[in-house]
Each structure stands twice: as C-alpha cells, then as structure tokens.
Design a protein around this nucleic acid. Structure first.
Length: 456
RNA sequence: GUGGUUGUAGCUCAGCUGGUUAGAGCGCCGGAUUGUGGUUCCGGAGGUCGCCGGUUCGAACCCGGUCUUCCACCCCA
C-alpha cells in the first residue's frame, strides 16, 4: 500500500453518522436562536490580519493562524529585517491575512462596515468554524465550530436575562440536564481590584482568581504574590476564597464588600437584576450560579460574563461562554455601540452528548427501499417505479450493478434498509413487484400503488 | 510556547534480553447457496511495524530527529 495520507494536527474528518449527530445539534441551536428573534449572517473564514491582531491579547495573537502572502513574498522584505530573525516583525511583512479566531470580532467588524444598512438593535446569529493554532487535547481542536448569538445597539439588561434563558432552552432541548450557567460581572471584578488597591493589576488578579477551583486558595494566593499583588490586598479578598450560599446571599455579601466602589456597586445592581428576573421567570434544566471567580478573557468584556459548564461528572471545559462588551466596535471606529452575546462550543457539546448517550434519536439519512438489480430489463422497469417513489419523497435506490442476490441483500442488511423490492421476469410479465420486509422477512407480491403505500 | 505520552493489518491489540517467513480476534473478499440478508462451515487477500537517519553481522525492539495521539501547564469552545 502507498504511504497513507493524513490530515493536520487538531483537525478531523466526520463520518456520515457523526455529521448526522452534528447536524442535530446545529439545527437545535439554530431553531432556538430564531425563536429568540436572531437572524443569521456569515463572514469570510479569513480576515485582514489588522482586524484580528491585538484583539485577544498576546496569547491570542500567538494562536491566530496567519496566511502567507501570495507571490514571491520574501523578495519584498527588507534584508536587514530578515537577518534580525524576529519572527513577529517578519510575519507582519509576509502575512496580511489570517483565519478567524472567533466570531465576535469579525461580527464587530461587520457591524461597523454595514452600520448604515443595519437596523439597531441588531440581533444576529452565526454558526461557522474558527481556527486556533493551539496544542490539541480532548475537546480542544485547531478547527472547531462556534455558534454565536449577539445583540448590538442595546444596553438593556433584559438581553442578559434572555441569554440565560436561551442557554437553558438549547440545553434543555438537547436533553442535556444539569448544566451550570456561571454568571459574573466585570464591574464586580474591577470593584474588588479597586477596593484592594490593585486596580492596575486587574487582569493578573482576575486570571489568578479564576483558577480558584483548580489550584485552591493557597495556589491563588501564591500566584497573586508572584504577580506583585500585596499581602494586604490578598488578605482583603479572603472572603472570596470561601464564597458560597445562594445567589441572593452572595449578592448581599458582595454589596457589603463593595460598598466603597461605585463601579462595584453598579456591578452588583446589574447582577441582581439578572438573577432576580431569571429566578422569577424560571429555568427548565440549567442552574444559574453566581461565580465571582469567573473571569474569562478580559480583552473586550466590560459587563456581564457567562460561562456554561457541562453537568457534574463530565470532564469537559466550558461548553459555552459570552458576555457584554461596551466598546468592541469602537476599535473599528464606531463609538457607543454596546453589545452582548453568547457562544456555544458545538464540538464540545457533541463530546458531552456522546459521553452521556443523548444521541439516541438521531438517525442517519438512509433509504427506505432498495430495488434489487437483476439486469438491464429489470433495472429499467425498476427505474420507472423509482421515479414515482422519488416524486413522493420516499428515499429509495436501485442497486447500481447486477450483482449476486446475496451481495445485494447483504448491502440492504448492512445499511439497515427496511424494504427490498425484487423484480425479475415474472414480475415484469405480471406488472407487479415483490416486496420484502427486511425486519420480519415477510414477502408479498403487490402493485406499484400498494408498494408506495406500504413503504411511505 | 513548556514538560510528558503514544504510534504494529480496515478496527482492537499481542510480539520475550535485538536473531529465520511479524501474529490473534473482529472486519473484508470468495465458496458451500446461479431469485433471497443476518447464523454456520471452508478458503483467501491484506503490513515500508508512523516517517527519516544512526548503532549493529542483524532493528518492530536500542539511539537521535521529525510527524501524529493523548495528558498536564499556558490559554480556551
């Protein structure tokens, strides 16, 4: 055998069964998005590098796939620059395009570019692949799908409430019971940082706090110390390391802790609005959990932050996330357009559903009827019948070769085709068909009308 | 990007301290059975032992590199 071909690290092929399961998730999410009033858009798989670079932090920039310029790109690069061997500087000269890293930044670019055609508030959804030059792991790929819904042009907190409901609606419809929708607000994080006098170290502070459930209070303390946050400051946030109780209790504690911070208090008020209303309206199967350690990428979030984790017992990172960004379009020159949105990680949801065996009702599109092929005359007779089958939308096919009966039956059996139609010279003479039910093994002779009726 | 881990038939895996022709189960193909599938029996095909190089009389096995897999970081869906 020749050398086997392969595909790049972190990418996958999908079998017919896998595609069917993935489509089931896609269509469920799409249906709910539309029920909530969102409209679809699509954007190119690659953007100008300038649109993407610098929007996700240094770490993000490193993970963006860059596309090499066309032509003899090295010729245009300055000799001195090349000899410096500074990859970063050279990259900007030889690559002007990059694969999209998420759907939010391209959406912001879209909004700015189409601002005069858009009816605000604009509610859009988008389900497309994104690419990250990450090291693959379970549930981490270099090509994966995100399903995003965002609203831009509204600061109303009802959107935040609706997104919690939307998460709950999708996961309930997928029968994925027991997900936890974690909620936080960046203003609270900013408030805490302000109270402890570490405002300039907000990002280091929150990144460390985010790891609480993973490395524990001691680990977080050490990381904060190593980032230059003072012991006094860490002492002040001790209560956060043991933060539990109901959402209402947590809100009350936060209100007390943040009394001195205007921004922090605003965050508490926002959260209270969301929590109160979500609780009043009720959720079907998800839990809403106020989590002050939730930080996420702080690069553009300014208000509410969401993250969804799979039901307990399933080892999987977050299966969704999102939040409010007050000035994302500002980067592209359109001020004062606030946006809020959420994202579903399709590939991770797939892995979770698969692990919990929640795909039972997903069926492969397969024919209902197979016509056995005995030769040219018989095939011709069958093809005429097939025209009628297909007019009625009954999935059906003729075995393409006049192979041995056993082989054809075997094919039907393996593909789990429920009905087989056998046509030989006898059937042609009598203008009828022999229909075999593959489950029961029963056989009967019938007319075309009867055939269509039984197999429909 | 850092550290570790993995790779043998289509699939799941054996393969001793380096030693003839690298095995098994399942699957696949053919026959028993020329218009009847699943079961059974018989037979058969299929391997650059991830790739490149090194050590050796001799390498699936030892060494180096590389690619891939999975894991922990980093970060994240």
């Amino acid at each position: 055998m020749a050398q086997k071909p392969g595909i790049p690290k972190g990418t996958r092929d999908f079998t017919p069964t896998e595609v069917a399961k993935r489509n089931y998730i896609f269509s469920t999410i799409k249906e709910i998005f539309e029920v909530y009033g969102f409209q679809p858009i699509e954007t190119p798989s690659f953007e100008n590098s300038s649109t993407l670079m610098g929007k996700y932090g240094d770490e993000g920039d490193r993970l963006i796939f860059k596309i090499l310029n066309s032509g003899d790109y090295l010729k245009k690069v300055d000799e001195g620059l090349l000899s410096e061997k500074d990859s970063l500087k050279v990259t900007s000269k030889i690559s002007e395009k990059a694969l999209r890293y998420d759907l939010t930044v391209p959406f912001a670019r879209y909004v700015v570019q189409h601002q005069n055609e858009i009816e605000f508030p604009f509610k859009r959804y988008q389900m497309q692949p994104v690419w990250r030059a990450d090291r693959p792991q379970k549930g981490r790929f270099r090509e994966f799908y995100q399903c995003d819904a965002d609203v831009v042009g509204s600061k109303g907190l009802w959107q935040e409430v609706e997104f919690v409901q939307l998460y709950d609606a999708v996961f309930s419809k997928l029968k994925l019971v027991g997900t936890t929708i974690k909620l936080n607000n960046r203003k609270i994080l900013a408030g805490i940082a302000e109270i402890i006098g570490a405002k300039d170290k907000l990002i280091d502070f929150t990144v460390a706090l985010d790891k609480l459930d993973k490395i524990g209070a001691e680990g977080v303390t050490n990381e904060m110390l190593s980032k230059g946050i003072s012991e006094d400051a860490i002492e002040k946030v001790q209560p956060l390391f043991n933060f539990n109780g109901s959402n209402q209790e947590k809100l009350n504690q936060l209100q007390e802790m943040l009394a001195e911070s205007e921004e922090g208090i605003k965050g508490v008020e926002d959260l209270r609005f969301i929590v109160d209303n979500v609780e009043a309206l009720g959720l079907q199967s998800a839990n809403l959990d106020l989590d002050v350690t939730l930080a996420r990428g702080l690069n553009y979030y300014t208000g509410a932050i969401y993250e969804v984790s799979a039901p307990k017992g399933v080892s999987m990172g977050s299966i969704g996330g999102g939040g409010r960004y007050d000035d994302l379009t500002g980067i592209f020159g359109l001020k004062d357009v606030s946006g809020v949105g959420i994202s579903f990680g399709l590939d991770r949801i797939y892995l979770v559903l698969d692990e919990l065996n929640l795909f039972d009702e997903v069926e492969l599109p397969k024919p209902r009827v197979l016509f056995i092929n005995f030769g040219e005359n018989e095939a011709s007779y069958c093809m005429k019948a097939l025209v009628e089958f297909r007019k009625k939308g009954i999935k059906s096919e003729l075995y393409p070769d006049s192979a041995k009966m056993k082989k054809q039956m075997n094919y039907a059996n393996r593909r789990e085709i429920p009905f087989v139609v056998i046509v030989g010279s006898t059937e042609i003479e009598n203008h009828n068909f022999t229909l075999k039910n593959m489950q029961t093994g029963d056989q009967q002779v019938c007319s075309l009308e009867e055939l269509l009726k039984i197999t429909a």
